[in-house]
């Protein structure tokens, strides 16, 4: 039960591995960015899980409630999400520029052109 009870952490680990695998294994720049996104998302879930308390509620003072979730990790991850969005945007922009310059977004084709020149 203990293992299953922490299923969200398993999700984090699985997502993280999938993300990393995509980043490493795929030669397509857009797919790399997708992989990077999945990888980052896993960490977002990690943070959200840390803050969540079993049976706790949102940290708004309400009568009759004694246990609240910790808001701080949630706030932190909001920042990280923004950073993630910025990274994705920049990555995509670079991919567009690379496509303009090389006419391809496949790593091996770009490599070939670089070697040829």
């Amino acid at each position: 039960m203990q293992v299953f009870g922490l299923y969200n952490y398993w999700v984090v680990i699985i997502l993280m591995m999938i993300g990393l695998y995509v980043v490493i294994a795929s030669g397509n720049l857009i797919k790399k960015i997708v992989g990077l996104n999945i990888f980052q998302t896993s960490v977002f879930i990690l943070y959200i899980s840390i803050g969540k308390l079993d049976g706790g509620t949102a940290p708004i003072l309400v009568e009759g409630v004694t246990s609240y979730s910790n808001p701080l990790p949630h706030v932190l991850i909001l920042t990280a999400i923004v950073v993630g969005v910025a990274t994705t945007a920049l990555g995509l922009a670079l991919a567009v520029r690379i496509h303009g310059a090389y006419g391809s977004i496949e790593e091996d084709e770009i490599q070939e052109q670089d070697n040829a020149s």
């Binding site: 990393l20 980043v23 720049l29 790399k32 990077l36 990888f39 980052q40 990274t87 920049l90 990555g91 670079l94 991919a95 520029r97 690379i98 310059a101 770009i110 670089d114």
Partner: peptide
């Protein structure tokens, strides 16, 4: 430089 920046972006983000 574009590919270098992209590679750096991926590694840096990881």
């Amino acid at each position: 430089a574009l590919t270098a920046a992209f590679r750096y972006l991926v590694m840096g983000t990881i």
